[in-house]
């Protein structure tokens, strides 16, 4: 049952920030609402004190997918369907495009937003590992300040971020990787569609004559939140992509995940599988990946 609450539809960012400044404690920002609305309806503790919703869909500042030469800027109110229908995203950010297609169902993708996916910061948020390997940044505004931080710094703990109570995420900016990068996104669920992910992996790699020039690795659902593996990336830099090394790297990913996550009830299954599937992703480089 939906609890009684109010809803505002600010016409621009300023109006929204003013409303937020007045009501910080009990307010929740929504765009698609695919997480917040059922959460409220199910009386989830996460939304227990919510008294006011601010719907950002009418604000021009959070709309549009703007394509620049170096980055693509996606408004916080853009849905996964908007992303899937954007040919530039498909071409320039193929991992994002692929992960967008694995989110929920058509009905969910028609409402749910990319920003909502990471602001919510569920461990299994499908797009997070992808955004992490793209070095995406988050544009955040409050009445008094405007800042842009790496998504990796923005995400703090399961269902928690560094967003202050007077702030709104306005855009997500994704640097377009240079053409030398290739990569892939992998998702494992319990069924073939509309599945909560058991494992997600994202990987971008650039090679120089079979040597790893740069690699970026991130996972979801096997770590408490979507996680980049910088140590692993550093270690891999300059190494040859020989089969033996790829196995080594995959095992190291497994070890790193144990370090981050510890052993859980699901580790016995997830750990070997994540190593196997990361290895498969790496082997995919030889076939050209995405």
């Amino acid at each position: 049952m939906m609890p009684p609450l109010g809803i505002l539809f600010p016409k621009d960012l300023n109006e929204a920030l003013n409303a937020l400044a007045l009501n910080q404690e009990n307010v929740h920002i929504i765009a698609g609402g695919t997480d917040v609305i059922p959460g409220l309806n199910q009386e989830s503790n996460r939304f227990k004190n919510t008294r006011l919703l601010i719907d950002i869909n009418k604000m021009p500042e959070v709309k549009g997918i703007n394509v620049g030469t170096e980055k693509i800027s996606i408004g916080a109110a853009e849905t996964f369907s908007d992303i899937l229908q954007n040919e530039v995203v498909q071409k320039k950010l193929p991992l994002l495009w692929k992960s967008a297609g694995t989110i929920g169902s058509v009905q969910i993708r028609n409402r749910a937003t990319l920003a909502g996916n990471f602001v919510n910061n569920a461990p299994c948020a499908d797009s997070v590992p992808v955004l992490l390997v793209y070095n995406a940044t988050v544009e955040i505004e409050s009445l008094s300040s405007k800042r842009e931080i790496f998504l990796n710094d923005f995400l703090s703990a399961p269902y928690k971020t560094k967003l202050n109570k007077d702030e709104i995420v306005t855009r997500i900016n994704i640097p377009i990787p240079s053409k030398k990068f290739t990569g892939d996104f992998y998702k494992l669920g319990r069924r073939r569609a509309v599945a909560i992910s058991r494992i997600t992996l994202a990987m971008l790699i650039s090679l120089n004559d079979n040597m790893i020039d740069e690699i970026r690795i991130a996972s979801g659902a096997v770590t408490p939140i979507g996680t980049r593996f910088f140590d692993l990336e550093k270690f891999a830099k300059g190494k040859k992509i020989e089969d033996q090394f790829l196995k080594e790297l995959s095992k190291m990913l497994g070890e790193q995940i144990i370090q981050v996550t510890g052993l859980r009830w699901s580790s016995e299954y997830k750990l070997p599988v994540v190593q196997q599937m990361f290895y498969q992703l790496l082997k995919g480089i030889e076939r050209g990946s995405l």
């Binding site: 033996q244 196995k247 995959s250 095992k251 497994g254 070890e255 144990i258 052993l263 580790s267 016995e268 750990l271 070997p272 190593q275 196997q276 290895y279 498969q280």
Partner: peptide
């Protein structure tokens, strides 16, 4: 055959 004692694969287990 997975070894539940060691969650890290050995080389021969990669497929």
């Amino acid at each position: 055959e997975l070894n539940s004692l060691s969650p890290i694969l050995n080389d021969s287990q990669f497929i």
